[in-house]
Design a protein around this nucleic acid. Sequence first.
DNA 1: CTGAAAGCGCTTACAG
DNA 2: CTGAAAGCGCTTACAG
Lengths: 344, 344
Amino acid sequence: MKRKVTLKQIAKELDVSISTVSKSLRDSSEISEDTRLKVQAFAKLYNYKPNNIALSLKNQRTKTIGIIIPEIVHHFFATVISGIEQIANENGYTVIVCLSNESFTKEVINMEMLANGSIDGFIISLSKETQFKGDFHHITEVMNQGMPVVMFDRITNEIYCDKVIIDDKHAAYDAMQMLIDKGKKKIALVTTEDYVSVGKLRTDGYTKALLDNDLVFDNKLIIKIEDIENCEVKIGKLIEDRAIDAILAVNELFAVTIIKMASKKGLKVPEDLSVIAFTDGIISQYSTPTITTVSQNGIKMGQKAAKMLIERIELEDYDDDEEHVQHYKTEIIETQLILRESTN
Amino acid sequence: MKRKVTLKQIAKELDVSISTVSKSLRDSSEISEDTRLKVQAFAKLYNYKPNNIALSLKNQRTKTIGIIIPEIVHHFFATVISGIEQIANENGYTVIVCLSNESFTKEVINMEMLANGSIDGFIISLSKETQFKGDFHHITEVMNQGMPVVMFDRITNEIYCDKVIIDDKHAAYDAMQMLIDKGKKKIALVTTEDYVSVGKLRTDGYTKALLDNDLVFDNKLIIKIEDIENCEVKIGKLIEDRAIDAILAVNELFAVTIIKMASKKGLKVPEDLSVIAFTDGIISQYSTPTITTVSQNGIKMGQKAAKMLIERIELEDYDDDEEHVQHYKTEIIETQLILRESTN
DNA sequence: CTGAAAGCGCTTACAG
DNA sequence: CTGAAAGCGCTTACAG
């Protein structure tokens, strides 16, 4: 079992100083070609690789990005990680992933844990509980320590930082307009509770589309679902009682449940009922019928977030400490309406 | 912008030595209650938290686990990460995730990157390309350096280390037996190429079940799919030409495609054709009809893998360096047949 | 009871 | 051209 070799060992073996070894390996012109080559050969032979931790401590940079998301088993978040990871890798960064499991406390603990030197910056999507409480002190705290943060998807306007989102309101509006253009008159909305930022925005878009088109806005056509487990009854009732001709759902799980319930009640999708969902995930592609969606390009969101964060990190290396103008940006990722079988 | 405070700063502020501060904060009995409390109060006020990187360097332990998986957008892998993360967190570990994207080279690069001090151990599921090449030098290398590795799901027998798998062969056998008991005679298998370890094992189970039940084994009923994109034709042909009454699919994407193609060809599932899939993911629950699956409990696999790794890491802290007997284990996670609408 | 020193693995300004 | 020293932030055996 040959443990990893260190500069010290190489130095001893070659009977030179540690400094000489270090400089040789970094191709310093200070060192004679002779010893430089000798050291390099030896290092190669023993497969020397500098210790990341030591470098991190020395450089005060870890070259790693901390990601905090509510759940990894949601396809959308997995997609975002995938995008982040790609850009991170291209730039020599690695990625630490922590899950809040929608819990405020776990989100805070994770952030504090990572903030103590483990990472150079955060990419975060807030947990439901955090959005509900409206307590963002953990975010401000790390930002005050000079650690850059970019938020995506589930954000808050109370924090001023880099953000990447889709234009949820606009996207909902467009989806609605499409349904309205197809002649739908009585369109329901199946959404989450208002404290989830994206849910609220999509509701706004829904409402605006109705009003702009002089259609009746009926509160009873909006149902807000707390958790997916027991939504079937609510959805069933909606379909039964209201004689609606289309539904906009804020995620594909809701949409597929709607389709199931519709079929149980003897309604055909899309003939009797059109369905559009937010979040273009696996389910939409494989359900029967396939589901028309507003695609949130998670990969792109992740890529963008990673780019913004890395830029911020590496910018800070220059004008360190200086109270420079922090020009934070909010990037809007374009959505796309992907037409499938659930609308006609 | 108050940057993170260090021991040094506290020491200076309080006009004591760094050692005194350090000891005070660790409740050392060497220190007088007086100064201990004073230091602790000050540290609390300034929200002092020890720097992880410095601790890692000092302790030669990072308290982080490196995960390398082929893809994060596969629900199964996301589940496993979720399980790992949970156990890791409970034990004070964080988790670094790297994706190989099914590429051998990326797998190697990621491993080398993490092996240089960033983590205490690996949990890995091999990329397809790695399994195809049969080149595992990167694994042996890190193991030789004394870094524990546990492999899950996509493993290799050529490496002797801790492993956690499901009994793929047995699970396939059971699924087959269930179909056979229901009177199915002509059962097809839709699988991956043989170099994917789990694909091979499931094929073995399929074959054995047929032979044990004195049914005809027909090579034409096995189709091997390289990638999901262009499998529809192959599957369509299978259904059309062979007059089969059931199909075992090695993942749910294949299964849902089978169902789609069957419906196109005018066959009803499960009336005309029963379908069972490996991997109980989101799709199986939401497709129409819902799909009977062999559930691979990813959460449990992740938990088990994390437990094994942490145990190994912390065991090594004791008998460091000693060439102790390395009693590696292979844990088998139980699978379960989840009956749904795609079988009758 | 307190603090100086050594050390984890590295880099780099400085001396010789 | 080479090496000793200081330093990143911490801990701990040892001296006083």
